[in-house]
């Protein structure tokens, strides 16, 4: 049987962003950012305000004078960093959970998500690729569908937790599709589309395990894909035993990826990961 209808229902019922956050995102998505309105929206969220000030004062930005107002922090950070920070702030709160179906212990899911976001930026930077500015966020949110699918995985313990690990065995997203009628990529994309996030973000979520099938935003999707694969190779916050996903050879060719680049990105990511987690925890 398929759980697809139930899962679609669960997506519709999935708690949306808090209203205040939705307001912030709407402001940030508007063509010209009104900093005054943004300040008004942000300052009612003490956690977010603290994180913005902390980041603006961190060594990452090298500002000599202390940044003590939100207005000044916006100027220091710029729109792109600000968007990333707002998304990270919201997601980390949402991602700091145990996912029993995927056997992600607490912290696993959050670590994996942040790792992929950072690695994606590092890949783009190292390869000298200019992509959409939302690359970090696309990486951060790539597995958000797992939040929806997790309880359904628990209903099929035998199918979804089989620990036979053969190099030829079925990839986990295909297994989700076969057993549940939908995989976490598609579920995540539908959810984000509901939330009105920029289209390249939900395209990346939709195709992060099948970049060859994407027609638009292909480069961004391929970068998120290889970043995710790198996180798996390194076992960063990966759950279910015996899980494997397919690596797209085509993406490697398109990105002209070399072994050294992969290793370099891994080394950069682990460093930045430590910094970001310190900042956000």
């Amino acid at each position: 049987m398929s759980y697809r209808n139930d899962i679609e229902q669960a997506i519709r019922n999935f708690p949306a962003f808090p209203v205040s956050t939705q307001r912030i995102l709407n402001l940030m998505n508007s063509p010209s950012l009104d900093y005054e309105k943004l300040e008004e929206a942000v300052r009612y969220d003490p956690g977010l305000t603290a994180n913005i000030l902390r980041l603006a004062n961190s060594a990452l930005f090298g500002v000599k004078r202390p940044v003590d107002s939100l207005h000044m922090a916006f100027v220091v950070l710029g729109e792109k960093k600000l968007f990333e920070l707002v998304m990270a702030h919201i997601s980390l709160r949402m991602f700091d959970v145990e996912l029993q179906g995927y056997q992600h212990e607490r912290q696993d899911f959050m670590r994996h998500s942040v790792w992929v976001g950072i690695a994606a930026e590092q890949f783009a930077q190292t390869l000298g690729i200019k992509t959409e500015e939302t690359l970090f966020t696309a990486g951060l949110l790539h597995d958000i569908g797992k939040l929806v699918l997790d309880p359904f995985l628990l209903q099929e313990p035998e199918e979804m937790q089989a620990s036979d690990v053969e190099s030829t065995s079925e990839s986990f997203d295909k297994r989700e599709e076969r057993v549940l009628g939908i995989n976490h990529n598609e579920a995540g994309a539908i959810l984000l589309e509901h939330w009105n996030l920029p289209s390249e973000i939900y395209a990346a979520v939709r195709f992060h395990h099948a970049p060859d099938c994407a027609t638009a935003h292909k480069q961004l999707i391929e970068i998120v894909h290889v970043s995710d694969m790198l996180a798996y190779a390194q076992s960063v916050g990966t759950g279910v035993k015996g899980v494997h996903y397919d690596l797209s050879e085509e993406a490697l060719v398109h990105l002209n990826l070399q072994a050294e680049t992969v290793e370099y990105v891994a080394s950069q990511t682990v460093d930045e990961m430590k910094e970001v987690l310190d900042l956000l925890e």
Binding site: M229, Y232, A233, Q234, H244, L247, E249, A259
Partner: peptide, 15 residues
């Protein structure tokens, strides 16, 4: 462990 199948450039484990 070889978690990712396929291409050699991800064979960090071998190296």
């Amino acid at each position: 462990a070889r978690i990712i199948q396929g291409h050699g450039m991800f064979r960090i484990e071998e190296r």
